[in-house]
Design a protein around this nucleic acid. Sequence first.
DNA 1: TTGACACCACTCCATCTGTAGTACTACGGT
DNA 2: ACCGTAGTACTACAGATGGAGTGGTGTCAA
Lengths: 188, 188
Amino acid sequence: MRRNPERRRALLDAAIEVLAREGARGLTFRAVDAEAAVPPGTASNYFANRDDLLTQVGYRFYERLEPDAATMARLAEGPKTREAVKGLLRETVDRVTAFRTGYLALLELRLEATRRPELQKILTERVRADVSFNITNHLKSGMPGDETSVLLLYLALNWLIVERLTLPDVLTEEQAAALVEAAVDRFL
Amino acid sequence: MRRNPERRRALLDAAIEVLAREGARGLTFRAVDAEAAVPPGTASNYFANRDDLLTQVGYRFYERLEPDAATMARLAEGPKTREAVKGLLRETVDRVTAFRTGYLALLELRLEATRRPELQKILTERVRADVSFNITNHLKSGMPGDETSVLLLYLALNWLIVERLTLPDVLTEEQAAALVEAAVDRFL
DNA sequence: TTGACACCACTCCATCTGTAGTACTACGGT
DNA sequence: ACCGTAGTACTACAGATGGAGTGGTGTCAA
């Protein structure tokens, strides 16, 4: 088992891309090798088996998901109005929607977690952390809205993104944008 | 290509189970044969290829998804109160959450739709129909809430189900139930 | 000199697919 | 009542594919 952490990270990032592009079906060691542009057999040397690979991808994914510094600043220092919240959320939805591969890979991971306890454990931890992070930050910022508001927004916006990414023609872009605003108006 | 429609349906239902249990990766003609308890090679005779199979599963899934008659009756005849809506929705969430395999299969299909235009077309049609059905029914019923309310509820509840099915320990059952109530209170 | 790793090549293996061939069943015709 | 035909179930096979894992060699750095 090789130890070079930089290479391992590169392989995991490649795995995320493969996962999003080809789905769980296409995620093979060889595909990861190809995506990472390393010689065939390399991934075999870095991961004991598919399970191991998936689990490490789970870690890696959330490792990459750092809170956006600029957004954090606006949350802390910007105006504390409904409009501000709307702007922030619209941006967030756009940003996530734009990071197509990442979000789709995460969905694949969630489905895999259904069958892999270890992976489920990791994802549960990370999602929990993410949710409470959002709640405490929102509350601390002094923006309008309580814990329940944040949770409801979390729910609605996540599915909105799923909808936009998997079946983009169900809701138009305008409808999606309007829904973000409506969600803020009614939740806070 | 065989034509026996009963058998074809049985194969498609088997495919849904396989999809939910093993994921897209495990969905092979042979696995479908085994799940449906028919001789190996049967699925090959009924579907031209994997694409064809997936597409027909898409159709079949929504064929099976009929509006619950009792629920429809309550929607039309029951009291038109917030409490009634809450009850209905809580039940709906429970029912869908209980039909684990079906919902998980649907998520797998959505991810597959990302790579299969034909499948995407079918799912888009069906989801659209489902959404407008819910909207018109809700409005017709005279329950409180407008179109936007229904859409927001659709978004939030769907992700709530995803959360419960894929990472059940992120939100407790009680939290989930509370969120359904809160969603109604704030959306309508 | 030694150890760790990159790279390469090769073998084994596990499926899966698609189809050809045979047997069965039901139905329609005479 | 008998036979022929069509469509389907079932079995078996041939082929192909693709991937996993590992051993060996070269390279670089401590």
